[in-house]
Structure formats: structure tokens, C-alpha cells
């Protein structure tokens, strides 16, 4: 599968899943306040997690193909994303 096709599949699946969760959550909440909170939470989590999933997938493709340039680029981006995640977790622990 080409890199474009793989990334497209990941992003479009994430878009459909997150939009469906957000829409369902908002609809439920409109019917009964508070009822859609979990679905909305899952939709937002899906959005925030998508760039991580994408870069991990690109990294896996680079490894499989032995594409050093792509590997270096995706590893660099992933390390920044993981550093941000670590900062977020540390700040959360400090609360």
C-alpha cells in the first residue's frame, strides 16, 4: 500500500469515528443533559490521538521499507509528540 493511501485511510477513519462520536454525544446530550458526555469524550480523545497513530504508522512503513530518510523524519516527529505527552502526564500528576 502506498504511503499516501495508508495515511489517508488512517485519517479518514479517524474523521468518521470522531465525527460520529461527537454528533451522537451532542444529540444524546440535547435529549438528556449529561447523557452524551462519554461519547463526546471518546470523540475528542480520538482526535487528539490521531496524529500519534499517523506518525507511528509512517514510522512502521519506513522501517518495513528500509527508508532511512522517512525513518529519521518520522522518528524525530514522534519523539516530539511523545515529549509533549510526557509533559502533559507530568503536569497532570502534579495536580
Amino acid at each position: 500500500m502506498s504511503l499516501h493511501r495508508l495515511v489517508y485511510r488512517i485519517l479518514s477513519t479517524a474523521m468518521v469515528v470522531s465525527a460520529a462520536l461527537l454528533a451522537a454525544g451532542m444529540a444524546l446530550d440535547a435529549l438528556e443533559p449529561g447523557a452524551g458526555g462519554r461519547l463526546v469524550g471518546a470523540g475528542i480523545l480520538a482526535l487528539v490521538a490521531t496524529p500519534y497513530t499517523t506518525i507511528v504508522a509512517v514510522l512502521a512503513v519506513a522501517l518495513k521499507r528500509g527508508d532511512r530518510a522517512l525513518l529519521a523524519l518520522s522518528a524525530a516527529i514522534l519523539s516530539v509528540l511523545l515529549a509533549a505527552l510526557a509533559v502533559g502526564l507530568l503536569l497532570n500528576l502534579g495536580r
Binding site: 475528542i44 480523545l45 487528539v48 490521531t50 496524529p51 500519534y52 516530539v80 509528540l81 509533549a84 505527552l85 509533559v87 502533559g88 502526564l89 503536569l91 497532570n92 495536580r95
Partner: peptide, 10 residues
């Protein structure tokens, strides 16, 4: 994503 993950966890 780099900023939003911090906001989200916070």
C-alpha cells in the same frame, strides 16, 4: 496535537 495533548491531560 503537541499542544492539545497537554491541554487535554490538564
Amino acid at each position: 496535537a503537541t499542544s492539545s495533548v497537554v491541554y487535554y491531560l490538564r
